[in-house]
């Protein structure tokens, strides 16, 4: 039994095609990541699956229930964290959790064990107003509230946006823990580096899923070899390489440039000579740079 099945979902807002023929499936005990920039259609997919909006075409099942007909049954069995911090900032941590317990018709005390590992981290601040929590603690509180009714499926829309690296790491550790307890988790993120924390990812851009696979497989499938160029004249080199006849692509990647050649086999000296011929001196070329999900994403965008 699959936790989520979506087939050929499409949705248009006025003139804008938000998503087009999106098909994904998520298993229980799996973290599925929807990875793509703002406006790619991630939120639309999650909102359709959480029964908040209706797709124009296509169909979807969540926990075997149809998102249109059985929306009330879905609403009882899923947990949802929308993009914006959506708790009540003028209520305390404890008041928020208890409120959500009562909304889902369950008792906070009875289900305390479910959220214990997460909630215990913010429990020392239980009398603090939610609005006064740091970004990381807010996320933990929101997750506690989304989990208080023991959902089988968890939808998280950009849970780590605007949260610092330490809190992000802790948050992902919690998600992996929940997954191991058998939950199905659909999470969206614009951060490409979070892909490796998911079991499977869907790379999404302009409303279309470009590729679905495990992160390792996506990186393995990358068919180009990448050369790294390190220099303190990044911009000059980028400009030059863009005029170079054999350049397939060249982009800044952190402190180096990722360069891909059009040719399958060639001599590194070619590039070196080209740059030196254009009066660039201080640079190092590295062979066999490991591609990242971002490299794959950018290459897929070229073919879209």
């Amino acid at each position: 039994m699959k936790a989520i099945i979506a087939e050929n979902l499409s949705k248009k807002y006025q003139e804008v095609q938000a998503i087009e023929n999106v098909s994904i499936d998520v298993n229980f005990g799996e973290i599925f990541g929807l990875i793509g920039p703002d406006g790619a259609g991630k939120t639309t997919i999650i909102r359709i699956l959480t029964t908040l909006i209706l797709a124009d075409s296509g169909n979807a099942n969540v926990n075997t229930f149809d998102v249109v007909k059985d929306y009330q049954k879905i609403r009882k069995s899923v947990g949802y964290m929308p993009g914006k911090f959506s708790l009540y900032e003028d209520l305390t941590v404890e008041e928020n959790v208890k409120l959500f317990a009562s909304i889902f018709n369950s008792k906070f005390e009875e289900n305390y064990n479910l959220i214990k590992t997460i909630y215990s981290q913010i429990e020392p601040f239980k009398n603090r107003l939610a609005g006064q929590l740091s970004g990381g603690m807010k996320q933990k509180l929101a997750l506690s509230c989304a989990l208080i009714h023991k959902p089988k499926i968890l939808f998280l829309d950009e849970p780590t946006t605007g949260v610092d690296a330490v809190s992000r790491k802790e948050f992902w550790e919690m998600l992996i823990d929940l997954k191991n307890q058998g939950l199905a988790i659909l999470v969206s993120t614009p951060y490409m580096d979070e892909a490796s924390l998911c079991d499977r990812v869907g790379l999404i851009q302009h409303g279309k899923i470009m590729q679905i696979d495990t992160p390792t497989k996506i990186v393995q499938d990358f068919k180009h070899s990448i050369f790294g160029i390190e220099s303190n004249k990044v911009y000059t080199i980028l400009e030059l390489l863009r005029t170079y006849q054999n350049t397939y692509s060249c982009y800044a990647f952190g402190d180096k440039i990722h360069y891909i050649d059009k040719r399958n086999k060639f001599d590194i000296m070619d590039i070196q000579n080209f740059l030196k011929g254009n009066k660039v001196e201080n640079f190092i070329i590295l062979d066999n740079v490991k591609p990242t999900i971002e490299d794959c994403f950018m290459d897929l965008m070229r073919h879209q």
Binding site: P37, A40, L238, Y251, A252, M298, M301
Partner: peptide, 20 residues
């Protein structure tokens, strides 16, 4: 924050250019 990787590079191009 939130832009696609290609657009992000274009933005960094601008920054690098100005820095140079």
């Amino acid at each position: 924050g939130g832009v696609d990787p290609v657009t992000r590079r274009q933005f960094w191009d601008l920054i690098y250019q100005s820095a140079e």
